[in-house]
Nucleic acid binder design. Structure first.
Lengths: 191, 191, 191, 191
DNA sequence: TATGAATGAGACTTCATTCAT
DNA sequence: AATGAATGAAGTCTCATTCAT
């Protein structure tokens, strides 16, 4: 298979983006990969050496992937925490849970690569937890949620959502798990 | 470093046990290890080749470690589910949660090595989940807990306890997390 | 599979013989074996260590196997060379060729283990070649065979027989090869 | 011994060639080698890992060596079989025998590595045997050789030549063996 | 004599990373 | 900026051989 790729000159931004995209694609595909650097560059139609022009190591790439995946979430929670519009907190929390469960439940190793070992000690972990906690705090302030330690609620919620996603990925019923999580949050967070 | 170790002849059982012990010790220590087989045999005061007399690969050892760690739990839950004595279900659930949190919260990679990727699809995962669910079911039958899908409650509880343990391992307050989990279970499972 | 074999005390002769038998059985079986010492002792229903009571190394065993297999041949050729009875040399050579071809043609790695690398430089090789040559020399002396360098004829014959055996082992027609060898010897050795 | 070799960047073709050359050199040298990959890369002034860029295993390399060594032969026989020029078959067969005997007789393990176990079942074996047989068939058609199964003649001839080469490598007289083979072919193949 | 648990040198292989072009 | 050939440290695993019992 001689895919004689000729030198493709791209802007650094674009090339870096293509590599991250390729990594995410592979991570999501769930195919077992051992030789990551080679697999990613092949997928991105770039040469192996090009990888190291943009990332200093494989760990570095993983950080980039995590950033990309999380920034979406974090942004949305920040907006929730900072908006001046009125927010339907129950609807918001349900929607975010579903969204997260579906991301995690998607078969493939993406969420694992992104979340595994992501404790509140990591930079990313803290940022994510804080964004969620900030939103929850507003819901508590407005009296919609019971007053609890928002940080701990955020972490716990994250764990629950994770479990649901895993179970769904393992073949259990999505509907039942969504309902179960909804039931749990209602019981737990209602004043 | 020639630690000219003399040949120690042990019964297969004993030697296998020593190797598992050594593995658990290292896993718990949290020291970063890359070359596990060599590290474990060194720790167990055995030769590298001896490892392969008892385990066909590192994965195989991990299974043995998991078995060892889980069997304790599973036994206790089975006893709860089968006893004819009256059980104080709230006390039981609290006690088990504390115990689990403390195991997981113990610094080091043991619980991670044992539990990571342990979904209800794995043999061990299913066995554990079932043992917990069976106990919960009795609590529900006796009307102490609300009637819910015991399997899902078990999995979720496991995730929550895991999160608590992780947080504690990361330095957060044990007391506050224990209290939070207690509060969650009360709210969630009370009829 | 706990074949709890209890200590079987055998005369050294008998035990050694059993081990050689087992080795030949395995060699003949053609099953791919990597761990020979272990395979042979298992087959002989003996402990691994017992092997080294009778053989100083695996090479040593191979020598014993070779001796066993060859001694038969050598004896027969010696008898041919030394008998005072009249010999039908054409019949004798045909019979020996068939016998050798059938040994070699028997599927399995025995003949390979025994003959591979057996050049006239090895002790065994020289002995075998000499025995054959001695018999041929008598056939020549009696005028039945053409006068040729008996040693070279022996070696060449050996090679031809080997090729025939291999071909048969590889699935070609035994009858045709036997006939071809017979034709070759007639043409080549007739005065 | 730190032979701080600097990085030599070669075209894949060139590097692969150098590795094969090195392997042939070692094979011919007859030195006992256990760790082939390491020995070959050292000989080729390359790093161990480089070997696996071009060959997936030592077996793979052996195939390449065989191809290299055999292609010469096969080509020559094919040409003989296909030429429209008149061919002096006796001269041709003598020349090829001498050539083959000299290759095999060259001390060292090359021919052994290449030919051992090369039965007519292997791809290469069949190809080689067929090329020889095709040439012989033409000699038979032209009435120079007696009519025989060309395939069997080819295999047998191969074996005889092999024996001669081995004997010469073991120190016997080249002249006598060449003469013996010549005598054999004359007797056997003349109409 | 017999056992089988223990050994460790070393073979094989992988893959993140480097660097000459 | 881009390439891809080259590297070698590091890991996994095998198996003939040893030796305490």
């Amino acid at each position: 298979m001689v895919t004689s790729r000729s030198r493709r000159r791209l802007s650094p931004e674009a090339r870096r983006g293509e590599l991250i995209d390729a990594a995410i694609r592979l991570l999501e595909s769930g195919k077992p990969v051992t030789n990551w650097v080679q697999a990613v560059t092949a997928e991105a139609d770039a040469a192996k050496g090009t990888f190291y022009v943009y990332f200093s190591s494989w760990e570095d790439m993983l950080v980039a992937v995590r950033d990309r995946v999380l920034s979406d979430y974090i942004d949305r929670f920040r907006r929730l925490a900072e908006t001046t519009e009125p927010v339907d907190w129950w609807e918001a929390i349900d929607a975010e849970c579903v969204r997260a469960i579906d991301l995690i439940g998607r078969p493939g190793g993406l969420h694992d690569a992104v979340f595994h070992g992501m404790s509140p000690t990591t930079e990313d972990g803290r940022e994510m937890a804080e964004a969620i906690a900030a939103a929850l705090r507003r819901g508590m302030d407005e009296g919609v949620f019971r007053s609890l330690d928002a940080h701990m609620v955020a972490m716990t919620l994250f764990a629950v959502v994770h479990a649901a996603g895993d179970a769904i990925a393992a073949g259990e019923s999505r509907e039942q798990w969504l309902e179960a999580v909804r039931d749990l949050t209602r019981r737990w967070l209602s004043p």
